[in-house]
Design a binder for these strands. Structure first.
Lengths: 359, 359
DNA sequence: TTGTACGCGTTATCAA
DNA sequence: TTGATAACGCGTACAA
């Protein structure tokens, strides 16, 4: 068998299915079949076609295929406005897990950013209604709506992460912020702490509300009212956790009656708070126990090592993606609308018994 | 003007250009023109078409457009195998800047992961040769090659970030790891330090090699040979920076002659090293000055605050993306093949004069 | 300024 | 098992 001299093996972006068909001496429809349903074609022909495709470095044109079959193989992940780059790497961790799962299932991942402006919402809706994407994951945000288009009505499967919107029939994969904080606070209560200092995330934020509620529930469970909690922060987004922590330290220093336990809504806040409060002369955990939220790896290497609530971001991303793909592929799939993946409290050196217990 | 009762305003994914044309009473080609070149159509017609499109919630089908015009509007970013989630958030920061710039220019961003296995390389090549993407950014990695296909020959513009491959005609947007470390080391030398302890990244890694070279250059400049450097680490990837730092602390403790200055190839290493070495009884910076690389925000809140070299990730991502888009849109654009964006040394409390100077 | 007609590359239907 | 053919939705010559 002679090889044609004009081998296109390393040519730019050409090599169409027609080229493969010609080289293999078959019709394009046969090539298409050989590549998609290898079983429904004569083995010998299949091999010849495969060889031809290989030789030409043939790669199917994705746009043509999408147009023909009426759906893309792209999944979109909608990320909240300002990802924050403190110690807590929620977004990158989720993204990594999502991407891995998406690829493993033969899809591609596209990123969309949901800022608060209309143009970004419009962009997301274009992606959905224009058929660019076949499914969407949305992280800790409400579904965008602009003009007379709403993502919910785009006719594609959607799965929410971290934010519970199962009430609007959108499957939600979430963690139990509230319960996790409650359990951590109960440990502090068991260590004899009564007065708490709470460093808040942005007021009204879903996670902020839940975490604070967990603290209140724990106190209530111990017969204490929310009056035992002194709040700080709340005026800055999670993005500025470090700043919030610094301000909180100053707030703390001004208090007449000092709490003995601190619960922070994010690791960033706790890290900068702890750093500053120690410079101001307080000792952790002797004077003050500190607990925070996120489970950043760096917490283990703080001084003292910081107790935190680890969020199962990998499991969350993977579960949500598999959930979405299941919905995309068999929409009749009956699956629950709400999956809770538990967070885990990691106890480290930043907490100890309340030394002022007898005061 | 009457509205048709059968308004499709909130229908799933339908609403074709033909629908808009019908509603506006024009041909599809006119609709196409009105949407793309609003100038080349009668204003009155344009308004009627716009209204019709609005009413129907029309969104152009991306696959059809891509197929027709022969190119997509998707840019791919190829990320290195195992992103590491320590304190140094190189990848998410670059990603954020890239995504912002991509969207601002009317493109979409797709994520590709370059693990070391063949399947992920094949996947990337499919994206390129299948016309799914129109340009590629590649982060700190070599261009993938599988079978008789190479990304370099896919016929699409490519820009490399962090890794200098300008030698193979791929435009590279990089930082000056070597110079930055050299300058930091020169500060340490000026403070009287002579013996250095270097905590290495993965042996052979581009950044590792460059950073170490910077240290050596600084010493040479001061008339000292590399013998003044004791190396540790090198056996783990950057991903395991925290572990590397812990091991380094143990290595340090075993040394007969203690260096007075530590240079770490990443913040993670320095953070865990500093944490451990202090627990072992050494004081920073009184006994030991520490400097590291990456510029993680958390460094400011370490005890003591950690001197580090801040990498201009936002500028890097933005520059690279703009560079790529310029190449995509006007391939004749003459631009340099190599852009260096300087890193910045941030001096904090972790360094001080060498107290053993007279020893 | 607007309409007609064709083709982008693939897959699916149908007939051979 | 294979081949001819149509169609996916859009953009763009070209003609009107």
């Amino acid at each position: 068998m002679k090889k044609t001299e004009d081998s296109l093996s390393t040519e730019g972006s050409s090599a169409l299915m027609a080229d493969v068909a010609r080289l293999a001496g078959v019709a394009t429809s046969t090539v298409s079949r050989a590549l998609a349903n290898p079983g429904r074609v004569n083995e010998k022909t299949r091999a010849r076609i495969a060889a031809a495709a290989e030789q030409l470095g043939y790669t199917p044109n994705a746009a043509a295929r999408s147009l023909r079959v009426g759906r893309s193989n792209v999944i979109m992940i909608i990320l909240p406005g300002s990802p924050h780059y403190g110690a807590s790497q929620i977004i990158p961790q989720v993204l990594e897990a999502v991407n891995r799962t998406v690829i493993r299932n033969g899809y591609n991942l596209m990123i969309a950013n949901l800022d608060r402006d209309e143009s970004s919402e419009r962009h997301i809706l274009d992606l959905a209604f224009g058929g660019t994407v076949r499914g969407a994951l949305i992280l800790s945000s409400q579904l965008p709506v602009v003009d007379n288009r709403s993502l919910a009505e785009a006719g594609l499967p959607i799965v929410s992460l971290l934010l519970d919107v199962s009430g609007t029939s959108v499957p939600s994969i979430i963690t139990n912020d509230r319960l996790a904080v409650k359990e951590a606070a109960m440990e502090l209560l068991a260590l004899g702490h009564r007065r708490f200092f709470y460093i808040a995330g942005p007021t009204g934020n879903y996670h902020e509300v839940e975490r604070y509620a967990g603290l209140v529930e724990a106190l209530n469970g111990a017969g204490l009212s929310a009056d035992y909690i002194t709040r700080s922060g709340g005026n800055l987004t999670f993005q500025f956790g470090f700043e919030t922590g610094l301000q909180a330290a100053e707030d703390f220093a001004r208090l007449d009656e000092k709490p003995t336990a601190v619960v922070a809504a994010s690791d960033d806040m706790a890290i900068s708070f702890m750093s500053k409060i120690q410079k101001m002369g307080w000792r952790v955990p002797e004077d003050l126990s500190v607990v925070s939220f996120d489970g950043s790896p760096v917490c283990e290497y703080c001084s003292p090592s910081l107790s935190t609530i680890e969020q199962p971001m990998e499991a969350l991303g993977e579960t949500a993606t598999e959930f979405l793909i299941a919905r995309m592929e068999k929409s009749d799939e009956k699956r629950e609308l709400r999956v809770v993946i538990p967070s885990r409290f990691i106890r480290r050196d930043s907490i100890a018994v309340n030394s002022k217990l007898t005061t």
